[in-house]
Design a protein around this nucleic acid. Structure first.
Lengths: 242, 242
DNA sequence: GCCGATTTGTCCGTATGTATC
DNA sequence: CGATACATACGGACAAATCGG
């Protein structure tokens, strides 16, 4: 349940777009019409519309109106990398049956090499977790995570099999905020072949990232290794003045 | 040269972060201090800071301040996929010598298969362009573009060798606005092997996208095929309420 | 081509809420 | 508890692009 007005408006309009109230190419009602409908100022409407624009749903045009964009690919998407979303949330969102198997759950101390790779301080106590994601009966994703142990206290292999984010947010009250992500393609390792159903692929789409919580410290380094036919999306890209 | 106040402030603060005026973990001056410095309202400051947050430079925390985030990966980055940027712009930004060779430049009519793949209407006249990007002496990127011919009138192979975006924006007055992008890993095709220096790789990182201009119509379908060691970035990802 | 209405874009000033210290 | 700092929201003004008459 959205608490803020702009979130409510954002969700309402987004639902209307997704349910097909407007078709592609249509102009949305004007901002002034929305202010009347939602009983707020243009600023608040504009904030909600800006979020939808950022996600690639809308194309606002000066003097004309705001157009809904046709998006052939969105329907086929499974995981988006524009937002932070746990695997469980993504699977739920797409109504896909997904199961998780924890293959490693152990403590590690951050050495120099690992520190340079992950950004954790040398000597930090970390939790190392490897999980295999099975979707539609196939093992297609290998997730590798390093958590800062001091921040993820109480995390167990049982919880990791369900949803770590849900535990951290609901039980521990952590607030996941922001992350940086890097996308690469990599040759599959022996470990990838061992745990994933690679079919005839010998490479992977790898998404690496750092996650910060609202306490301000980086508490997770994550790597998600996807079989290439598991497509990932950036919801939108916006051109800045150059 | 930024025309708007918020762009100027955004650039100024961004430059300060990049030049190391603040180090990682530091708190930025408060919004009120910035309003005094730039002579504007908090709204305008907040807009500039929001852009930097979106790009992953900042972590604002309620009641505390705005922290600069440490980013080990950014320094090694070449191309970002959070924004729309021409290859030439990215190369310039990173001060890397890049050259472009046009290997195909021809007209095609959109058939049913192509229409489903690209989203162009069946029967549309398209311009098909293939270009190889050489960076540091190596052919590492194969760019494949379909332009809507009616919108890219006057485009020539000579222009394609320099910068298509520059031509479209400056000469034709088109305004590139928004796009949707998809990231996959793909097996290299014979064409990839033929034109790229693949070393011992046999797969590519592929970024596919649709580009709209301010006229509201999709006028470009683009595919950028990168040798895997050419890393790409998403500048940031933000967690929404779930 | 001009004018006025509409619509989005930018910016201002202010008030209040809420988390942190 | 008060001071500070970010978060949300209000209301208004003017600019700039578009469109119909």
């Amino acid at each position: 349940m959205p608490k803020n007005k702009y979130e409510l408006i954002y969700q309402t309009i987004k639902d209307e777009i997704l349910s097909g109230v407007y078709s592609a190419g249509d102009l949305l009602p004007s901002e002034n019409e929305y202010t009347a409908r939602f009983g707020c100022t243009r600023n608040t409407i504009r904030r909600a519309l800006a979020m939808l624009t950022q996600e690639g749903f809308l194309l606002p045009r000066h003097g004309r109106g705001v157009q809904v964009i046709w998006q052939p690919q969105r329907s086929r998407s499974i995981f988006s990398i524009g937002g932070i979303e746990s695997m469980k949330e993504a699977a739920d969102r797409n109504r896909m049956p997904m199961s998780t198997r924890v293959i490693t759950f152990e403590e590690r101390i951050c050495d120099k090499t690992l520190s340079e790779k992950t950004g954790f301080d040398e000597g930090s106590a970390l939790l190392y977790v490897e999980r295999v994601r099975k979707i539609n009966g196939e093992n297609v994703i290998l997730d590798i995570n390093y958590f800062l142990k001091s921040e993820a206290e109480g995390l167990t292999a049982e919880i990791a099999a369900k949803s770590i984010y849900q535990y951290l947010e609901n039980e521990r009250g952590l607030n996941i905020t922001t992350s940086l992500r890097r996308v690469t393609a990599e040759k599959a390792s022996r470990r990838d072949f061992r745990y994933l159903d690679m079919e005839d692929y010998d490479f992977l789409l790898v998404i690496t990232g750092q996650v910060f919580h609202s306490g301000g410290i980086m508490f997770e380094y994550t790597q998600s290794r996807h079989r290439p036919d598991m497509v990932c999306f950036i919801e939108s890209a916006v051109r800045r003045s150059v």
